[in-house]
Amino acid sequence: MAVHLREQEAEEPVLEVRNVSKRFGHVQALDDVSLKVYRGDIVGLLGDNGAGKSTLIKIIAGNHQCDEGQVFLEGKRVNFSSPAEARAAGIETVYQQSPVCTNATVYENFFIGREPVKSFLGVKTLDVPKMRDDTRKILDDIGVSMPSIDVEMGILSGGQRQAALLGRFLHWGGKIALLDEPFAALGVAESRNALKMVREVSKKGLPIILITHNIEYALQVINKFVILRHGNVVGSGKAQDVTMQDLVATITGAIHLND
């Protein structure tokens, strides 16, 4: 195990969060939180409601800025002021709770914010055939069936919508992916599909941070975990070393887990 650890230390983490703190008025949302994500990792970011998971994700994704501490992407200090900047730097986020543009078709949604364009006499026009072809290919790859890629997101079922969002992040990849509660709206079969997709993506080397309440699903894919409680890291380590009972006990504050 020590050998394994040293191997990892030699490699630079893709994402490092170092001593990050964040307050909202009187509420200490995050207090001196640190974590590292390496290539090929699927890190489960676990914790109860209000533990600070979403705040941490939003700081990494550029929605919020931290009060103290630093965020490093591939060793370089970053300080995003908007999701657009974070995305441009290679951080891909899929939110479950946040709304989608319901008037975008499936293929438009795949490319929102970075549509491919053709340039004609310096005028940039959307490359719709490319958008449609790519979308169809990716959906086939991950085995998702849609009524049509021309329908609007607003009329898809929860599962179809989630699949479209996951497909989008699979396609774009970037340097690291953040998945915020990807299973919340999904049925059993759809969740199984989604887990398969997460594994597929990870095999390609893309590191993932997975936020979820569902420990059972998490343990099927994650290799590391970080547990937040009241804004503090109360446990972290390798998924293979712990049981589900240990994780649940840590989340609820019964015990502390540390590697």
Binding site: A84, R87, Y95, R114
Partner: peptide, 15 residues
Amino acid sequence: YYVGDSKEAAFNAGI
């Protein structure tokens, strides 16, 4: 169109 549908979703999508 996207901004008109949902400013928040458009913002999150990097627009």
